[in-house]
């Protein structure tokens, strides 16, 4: 902010000079961001350096330095389990979501009536709240009366009557299925946008050259989608790393801890066991993982923007 402000600024808003006004325009937004994001970030970091059981005392507990972090990285099998669960979930959900989304994009990129209507209908799963998505799939996968488990039972006889949410492996599969169902439509729209902006000549040239449809897709279309694909992968990684709502409503981490993602672990630590200091420390470890991917993401979108 310039050091000397003209005295005129006291004469009213209408007389305010741009060099002052611009700070007033962003002030409310900065206040919101500072209060609801920066303050929690900083105080969360401060909590993470303390041992603090909220159930015992409303005041901050003793300072333990990096103690919480040391425990987290060296001596917590539960956290290690959550890390493993998150890794498996992230890898599988990213691969499945983006493959399905790409398939959907190729299938529904046309402008026929069926395609346009299908696109509108497919937006609904993504517009549904993650919490409701979890609840719905809990219902749909119910072995006795769930519509979807009946469908799966008909297609894969081995899974007939299987209790999806009671088996560790099947529960993870259910969580991924539910996530793919929820987020694939979003990435489909992203890919359809990218497909539409492909230079049509490259496709036509390849057709004239006699490429089959499959070669056309893998050798001409897909390489040109690489920049969009890279952004989609990063975004989906970031979304998957922080997945929480569906976990709470679909499996609540179970059976046992077989679907307890990091975000769910932190949530339980903070609000079930009220171990706020430790929860904050593990939250920062998760944030650090996400920051790596967010940094690459920003690199990608800022170098793409000027082009």
């Amino acid at each position: 902010m310039p050091g000397i402000l003209p005295a005129r600024r006291f004469e009213g808003w209408g007389r305010m000079h741009d060099r002052v006004l611009k700070y007033w325009l962003i002030a409310p937004a900065l206040l919101v961001i500072a209060g609801t994001l920066l303050y929690p970030l900083v105080s969360g970091l401060w909590y993470s350096l303390h041992e603090w059981k909220l159930s015992d005392s409303p005041a901050l507990g003793p300072f333990v330095g990096l103690g919480n972090y040391v425990v987290a990285v060296s001596d917590d099998p539960d956290l290690l389990n959550s890390g493993r669960v998150t890794l498996i979930f992230t890898v599988l959900s990213v691969v499945c979501t983006l493959s399905v989304a790409m398939g959907l994009a190729v299938l529904l990129s046309g402008n026929g009536r069926l395609e346009v209507n299908a696109r509108t209908l497919l937006v609904i799963p993504f517009a549904m709240s993650p919490a409701l998505v979890g609840v719905s799939w809990r219902f749909l996968l119910n072995p006795e009366f769930g519509g979807f488990s009946a469908l799966i039972g008909a297609l894969v006889p081995g899974l007939k009557g299987a209790s999806f949410l009671a088996d560790p492996t099947l529960a993870m599969a259910a969580l991924i299925l539910c996530d793919v169902w929820h987020s694939a439509p979003y990435f489909m729209l992203m890919f359809i946008g990218a497909l539409a902006s492909l230079p049509q000549e490259t496709v036509e040239a390849a057709q004239v050259d006699g490429a089959s449809r499959i070669r056309l897709f893998f050798e001409i279309v897909l390489p040109q989608l690489k920049p969009v694909l890279a952004i989609a992968v990063l975004l989906k990684i970031i979304f998957s790393l922080k997945v929480l709502d569906q976990v709470i409503t679909l499996t609540n981490g179970g059976p046992g801890t077989s679907t307890e993602t990091l975000a769910h672990f932190i949530y339980q630590t903070a609000f079930r066991w009220y171990d706020v200091g430790y929860a904050a420390a593990t939250a920062y470890l998760l944030a650090a993982c996400m920051a790596v991917f967010a940094a690459i993401y920003f690199q990608l979108i800022t170098e793409r923007r000027p082009a």
Binding site: S43, I238, K242, A283, Y284, M290, F298
Partner: peptide
């Protein structure tokens, strides 16, 4: 960039506050 802060990190201090 603030969009990429995980909600679990924000909610603990907000809850306390």
């Amino acid at each position: 960039a603030t969009q990429f802060i995980p909600p679990v990190i924000i909610i603990i201090p907000l809850f306390v506050a």
